[in-house]
Amino acid sequence: MKTAVSAPPARRPGGPAGRRRPGGGLSGRLGPLGVAAVAVAALLVLAALLAPVLAPYEPDIGSIVQRYLPPGPEHLLGTDQSGRDLLSRLLYGARTSLLGAAAVVVIAGVGGTLLALVATWFGGRVDAFIGRVLDLLFAFPNLLLAIIVVAVFGTGMAQATVALAMAYVPYTARVLRSVALRERRLPYVQAAELQGLSGVTVSGRHLLPNIAPQILTGAAINFGYAMIDLAALSFLGLGVQPPTADWGLMVSQGQDSLLQGYPQQSLLAGTCIVVAVAAFSVIGERLGGRAAGGRA
């Protein structure tokens, strides 16, 4: 209260030596392609958020007499085998697909970060043990692991998401562990450690903020993979269940129509997946490349 003259750390350039902060403008870091990718990703998220407003029809209700309608003024992208509006289904499908992938990335990111920090902080046997467990999980292909989990816990969106998140943990944990380990060896971490500060404090205050760029980068790259894998699980009938709109499920349900000469549904949903995955991968790689190159 008294004499709050010395301002709290409202750090502005123009301090003692107002130099450029590490990692300046975000657009500068992304480059033109990255900016385009961000725009595409933002558009997709916006479409998902505004699906109830934008969608001209209910996504799950169709009329059997209006099946396989070609694109036209009534149905901009045509209809599917049940006469449901494809545009509406794609918009609502974006919700399921993006939300599912986001959930996978968040769960895997949190789990992987925790494991990495624990392994890094304790080192020695703890590190070795966590490493072995991760190796064990690595031995299983991602999708197979997810399928096993779904087989045990049942099909459905939530189960598929959690299963996939578990399959992704080893990847995030391994990358983050190596980054955190490098950071752990720096003197500033040891300076904090020798003050007798707890592992939680040092990890949270020093390690976590400094590995945050890698966490975010990994999340962005994983996001694309998670979308593909979730779509695959839905395609296999293990993930999202009909009649919920989901891109992966739409590709799968469009199979029959495809054989009958109506490829729209599979093509459109597949294109959406490709575009979304490409956008998030580019973002991830741009962030990662710059973060790795631009270290002080």
């Binding site: 590490p22 720096l186 500033y188 300076a191 903020p209 400094n210 002080a296």
Partner: peptide, 14 residues
């Protein structure tokens, strides 16, 4: 203790 490396001895984000 004061460490050798002036680059690593301070957290670059704090």
């Amino acid at each position: 203790m004061v460490f050798q490396d002036p680059n690593g001895s301070l957290n670059r984000r704090r």
